[in-house]
């Protein structure tokens, strides 16, 4: 099934197809494609159904993640307000 969207709040854990997806440390960081530019990024953790670490990624918009055999694309990384949490929004691509 494609087209699913999920928005995950910073410091929380979503469950996608049995995998735990964590989001933390949303912040402005140097864009690897352009060292003169900063972009919002987030640290996304992926843990499979047995809670085995499937690798953490520091992601920004358009980065892709494999989750439980499906591919998801980062469509937005929100910094949040000054005191609140940011978020990451993912859309399933295949």
């Amino acid at each position: 099934m494609t087209g699913r969207t999920v928005r995950i709040e910073e410091t929380t854990v979503a469950t996608l197809d049995g995998w735990k997806i964590t989001v933390g440390n949303v912040m402005l960081a140097t864009d690897p494609a352009n060292p003169n530019r900063k972009r919002p990024t987030a640290v996304v953790g992926r843990y499979d159904a047995a809670k085995a670490d499937q690798g953490e990624r520091d992601v920004g918009v358009d980065d892709r993640l494999d989750i439980a055999g499906k591919q998801w694309r980062v469509v937005e990384v929100g910094l949040g307000d000054k005191s609140g949490n940011g978020f990451v929004e993912l859309v399933e691509t295949r």
């Binding site: 910073e10 933390g24 949303v26 912040m27």
Partner: peptide, 23 residues
């Protein structure tokens, strides 16, 4: 620490250390 109380350097170091800020 929250993002308002941690400057960019501390935020980057927290990321490296595995500390989730605001948590």
């Amino acid at each position: 620490k929250s993002k308002t109380s941690a400057d960019e350097t501390v935020q980057n170091e927290a990321k490296t250390e595995g500390v989730v800020l605001n948590h």
